[in-house]
């Protein structure tokens, strides 16, 4: 900025202060950053640090009180079969949800990026944004209505005369259950539904950047549409897909409400954290459990960064 053009120091405290800040960009920057950094640094990082510290304590088995000597015993407990089971179940669910979201999101994102113009484009954008921002609990609730034993899916199956198929699906080992709303299929459907918009938006952003003439060139050179998709569009859209998968994966790993409302009786990581810190009163184990999704996401983000996914966020 052209400081030389300013007149010599002017009267007034405010003027003096603003002139001082203009001459010292460093002080100006510090003034801007100090309040938010105090907030985030103390409240947020402080809390995360408190949590991390807790995970190195342990609970006395007899008195149930917290023993403040540093130990890795809570992390050791994570590797007990029952707890390892929870971690694996959650990661598999997150992976399945991510793949399903990507498959469902692609046509919507591709159509919106390549064919929707003008008003249509705005309609598509809003049609994705509205469900993304509308209430999480209402969305989960909607699926409880749909999947309930006496609910919509059963009625449709009954009307079409395919109740046998529905019963067959529910009779499947592991993923089945007494009804859709108490099976893993239900949990999976709700997760996919709730996180789908988080996949569509970054995917669409990366598809917008695929140059149309590359697709035309590929077609002119005689590529079958499937070949064009496989060798031109997909590699270029991959960073957007990975950016979306960061959301779908992370959100699934940390959620405890969806599996509690729609799903079987086996726990997911989020529920395990809730039980350990609540009824079980084992805060160190709860803290150790929360480190699992953070560590997994850390690895995931590190991998994603190498593919350039962050430019698509």
């Amino acid at each position: 900025m052209s400081i030389a053009a300013l007149p010599a120091p002017r009267a007034g405290v405010l003027r003096g202060l603003s002139d001082f800040l203009l001459r010292r960009p460093g002080a100006y920057l510090a003034l801007l950053l100090v309040p938010p950094l105090l907030w985030l640094g103390i409240i947020y990082l402080g809390s995360l640090f408190a949590l991390l510290t807790n995970s190195f304590f342990s609970v006395d088995e007899f008195s149930g009180t917290i023993d403040y000597t540093l130990t890795l015993s809570s992390y050791g407990q994570l590797f007990q079969l029952a707890n390892l089971d929870i971690v694996i179940r959650t990661v598999l669910m997150a992976a399945a949800v991510t793949l399903a979201s990507a498959a469902l999101a692609f046509p919507v994102a591709y159509y919106a990026a390549r064919y929707a113009k003008g008003r249509m484009k705005a309609v598509f954008y809003l049609a994705v944004m509205m469900p993304l921002w509308s209430s999480y609990l209402v969305k989960v609730y909607a699926w409880k209505l749909i999947l309930a034993k006496e609910g919509i899916v059963s009625w449709i199956a009954d009307t079409l005369g395919v109740t046998v198929v529905l019963d067959g699906v529910l009779a499947l080992p592991v993923v089945g259950g007494p009804s859709l709303s108490t099976s893993y299929i239900g949990t999976f459907l709700v997760f996919t539904y709730v996180w789908l918009p988080y996949m569509i938006l970054p995917l669409q952003a990366s598809l917008e950047r695929v140059p149309g003439n590359l697709v035309e060139a590929s077609e002119d050179l005689g590529a079958h549409p499937a070949q064009t998709f496989r060798h031109v569009i997909l590699p270029l859209a991959l960073p957007g897909m990975i950016a979306g998968s960061i959301f779908t994966f992370s959100l699934t790993l940390g959620d405890y409400i969806i599996p509690q409302i729609v799903g079987g009786s086996n726990l997911f990581i989020g529920q395990a954290v809730l039980i350990q810190q609540g009824t079980a009163g084992n805060i160190p184990l709860a803290a150790a459990f929360t480190v699992v999704p953070v560590a997994i996401m850390g690895l995931y983000l590190w991998g994603a960064k190498r593919t350039g996914a962050f430019d698509a966020l």
């Binding site: 408190a50 949590l51 929360t290 999704p293 953070v294």
Partner: peptide, 9 residues
């Protein structure tokens, strides 16, 4: 970070 991490922290 997953909401549960922020919450419990």
């Amino acid at each position: 970070l997953p909401g549960i991490v922020t919450g419990i922290a």
